[in-house]
Amino acid sequence: MSEPTDPAGADDGMGDLMTETKELSQEEIDRLLDFAMPSADAAGQPGAIERLVSSTTVNKDRLPMLDVVFDRMVRLLNTSLRQFSSTSVEASLLRMDWLRYNEFLDTIELPALIGVARAEQWDNQLLVSVDSALIYCMMDVLLGGRRSRPGRVDGRAYTSIERKMTERLIKVILQDLSQSFDPLAQVDFTFDRLEVNPQFATITRATNAIIRVRIAIEVERRVGHAEIVIPYSTLEPVRGKLVQMFMGEKFGHDTVWENHLKTELMRTKLDLVAVLHQTQVPLGEVLNWQKGTSLKLRVDPDTPVMLLSKTTPLFAGHMGQRNDSIAVKIDTDLETKQELIDGLLSH
């Protein structure tokens, strides 16, 4: 017979197991997840979760051609803003930052007017932000106000005149930006709306990568700033062209050099060879040739004649006679002249 079990002993064993299970306190959980306040000796050492988040920062050297695009835009902007304001304007590219959209919202200087625009061919959006210093400066210049440095104006909303003038300024910036992208891709940046609150100008998710370009504009010795914010997804259709390395000045055309090159090419002398027929002859037979040996081509007067420039066939025609000279009447263009021109340019 089996011995009866001791209920008390069973309870004691279960009690021992219960005492081995330890519950973590809130302080220990915070320390495990690095949510606790950093100590004096651990200052500057981010926690595991913070390091995980910060490791997803955007690289800054993925689009080399974008620097060229905005350099060209600044050159165009100098001319456009001089015509817009009828005074001396100097635009300069301060910096180009790769960051996330929520970081841009935290660093925007208020008050400011933010223009939302659309990239029509890319089916996406971008922002153009103009700070108050540039707005007041342009207002004074366009409306004939004072040219000295204005006082700081806080606590008031922008007037309808200021908003309308800023809208025109943003359209000028967007037009120059479109022209800057022309050598890479045809795109039209069209103005959509004007916002005062950055939260109402949201065009992408807070954690999405963006490119912020900060431009300084000096008007009558007064400096304001404009920022262009382009989500990385907006540039995706032309990313393949933007990642290429820039190997020289490819924007614009030198009409003087083009006309000179065209003129010189038209004056170039080209040697043409009329080939009546081609045949293959054994080498042994060629070695037996002597003076007066006849070579039968087995062609008739209607056989086409090929006109070649070295080894490039250009035309086909028929042989005849004109003014007591043997001539070739061109009947067919072999459409290989472009290959010949490319070969001349390569040399």
Results as ranks from 00 to 15, higher is better:
165 M>H: 04
169 L>P: 00
192 D>C: 05
202 T>V: 12
63 L>K: 04
130 V>R: 01
260 H>Y: 08
137 C>V: 15
184 L>D: 03
51 R>P: 03
330 I>N: 11
5 T>C: 00
161 I>H: 02
68 V>T: 11
152 R>G: 02
93 L>Y: 07
344 L>Q: 06
277 H>Y: 07
190 T>I: 15
269 K>I: 13
6 D>S: 15
231 P>I: 07
179 Q>K: 11
132 S>V: 10
66 L>T: 04
23 E>P: 00
305 V>K: 04
194 L>F: 06
275 V>D: 01
75 R>H: 10
7 P>F: 04
90 E>K: 08
248 G>R: 15
118 R>N: 14
99 L>Q: 04
40 A>M: 11
174 L>C: 08
50 E>M: 06
69 V>M: 02
37 M>Y: 08
264 E>A: 13
97 D>S: 09
19 T>Y: 01
313 P>Y: 04
109 E>H: 08
95 R>T: 10
277 H>G: 12
118 R>T: 14
281 V>E: 01
164 K>Y: 10
93 L>I: 12
188 D>K: 06
171 K>Y: 01
294 S>P: 02
132 S>N: 14
194 L>W: 04
112 A>P: 04
18 M>C: 10
97 D>P: 05
333 D>C: 08
148 S>K: 11
116 V>N: 08
65 M>P: 05
210 I>G: 00
321 Q>D: 10
128 V>R: 00
200 F>D: 02
47 G>P: 04
228 I>P: 00
21 T>D: 06
126 L>Y: 02
50 E>V: 13
70 F>I: 07
230 I>D: 00
108 I>R: 03
